[in-house]
Simulated scan of single mutants.
Amino acid sequence: MDNSGKEKEAIQLMADADKKVKSSGSFLGGMFGGGHHKVEEACEMYCRAANMFKMAKNWSGAGNAFCKAARLHLQLQNKHDCATSFIDAGNAYKKSDPNEAIKCLNAAIDIYTDMGRFTIAAKHHISIAEIYESELVDIEKAIAHYEQAADYYKGEESNSSANKCLLKVGAYCAQLEQYQKAIEIYEQVGANTMDNPLLKYSAKEYFFKAALCHFIVDELNAKIAVEKYEEMFPAFSDSRECKLLKKLLEAYEEQNSDAFTEAVKEFDSISRLDQWHTTLLLRIKKTIQGDEGDLK
């Protein structure tokens, strides 16, 4: 479907809205009290133009129009509408200009936190983190936004949502070799979930990840950590993850890279190890004397 007509219509609407905004601040507009009404009308026109730009898939045009509407909403003291328009602008800019999208989402977050709407602010911090992950590939900044989201969720007692954000942070910290921070997160989330009947099955996975991070730093620390997790969470002892860790520790002590690889292959044949686990296991294996091989 050809939407070029929609784009022309949108451009015309933008020009008309700009004129309305200008006349609202003029001497006559102010004297006869029509200024406020004109700003409201212009605001509506910018929103209509934005939707037409969206239909024409002109994402920058849509983002710009929503931003203009947001600024007018702010002038009219409509905080909620202002934040909504900034979110709409951010969503449009995501398709054309990630940096502009982040600016708009941050502007909305400032309004939501000012209104005490921390759960919504957290949700949009996650959106920014995802842009840094996939579009701008700046993992440090993604981590910062996931952490901020987790803080806001915790403050609102949304612990499940906070844990999801923290697990993202833990995974990235381990990849970036910030093992101590990753360990703290996995232990904290593991401890938070092990007493929850619905979530306790996941706790063994978090303790497993924490133990792998310990293992890379220091084999003795890993041994102590495994014993601690078994004591804290008896179900961990019977898990395949715990049994694998014990085999790996034994292979490490004996400096036996074949036994290490065999233990990993056996585990992987039943429970597939993802890229994150494989990366960490390879790092551990490479600390076994003179081994530069792979896990397969």
Rank of each mutant, 00 (worst) to 15 (best):
L245P: 09
Y201C: 13
Q255N: 13
I185M: 03
I185W: 02
I183D: 04
K164N: 08
F207D: 03
Y229F: 12
K204G: 05
E262D: 13
G190K: 03
S160A: 09
N221I: 10
S257L: 05
I143N: 03
K228Y: 11
A211F: 00
P234C: 06
N192E: 02
E227C: 07
Q175K: 11
D268T: 12
K247V: 15
D195I: 08
N196V: 00
A235D: 12
K265C: 15
F208H: 14
S160V: 02
M194T: 09
F260K: 02
A174Q: 08
A150G: 03
Y146T: 03
T261I: 08
E187H: 08
Y206F: 15
G190Y: 00
A174K: 04
Y252H: 04
E184L: 02
I143E: 09
S202K: 06
Q178G: 01
E227Q: 08
E147P: 08
E157N: 06
T193R: 01
N221D: 11
K204N: 02
I143D: 09
S160Y: 05
Y186Q: 01
C173R: 13
M232C: 04
L212Y: 10
Y206I: 07
S271N: 14
Y252L: 02
Y229A: 01
L166Q: 14
L198G: 05
Y153N: 01
G170H: 09
F207C: 01
L166Y: 07
I224A: 05
A149R: 04
E147R: 11
S271G: 11
Q175F: 07
S271C: 14
E205G: 04
S257T: 06
K223E: 12
N159D: 05
L248P: 06
L198R: 13
K223T: 13
P197I: 14
K246P: 06
Q255P: 08
G190Q: 05
A203N: 00
A235G: 10
K223D: 09
M194E: 09
Q255I: 07
E241R: 11
A162G: 01
T193G: 02
K228E: 12
A225Q: 11
F233Y: 00
Q148M: 10
A211R: 01
Q180H: 13
K181L: 12
I143C: 04
L248W: 04
I224C: 07
L249G: 04
L176T: 05
S202A: 12
F233I: 02
K154D: 14
A191Q: 13
K181S: 05
L166C: 06
S161A: 15
S160E: 00
F208D: 08
P234R: 11
A235F: 15
M232H: 10
I216V: 03
A211W: 01
Y146M: 04
K168L: 01
L198N: 07
A144C: 07
K181D: 12
D268L: 14
A174V: 12
N196R: 05
V189G: 11
K243V: 02
N221C: 10
A235Q: 06
I224W: 05
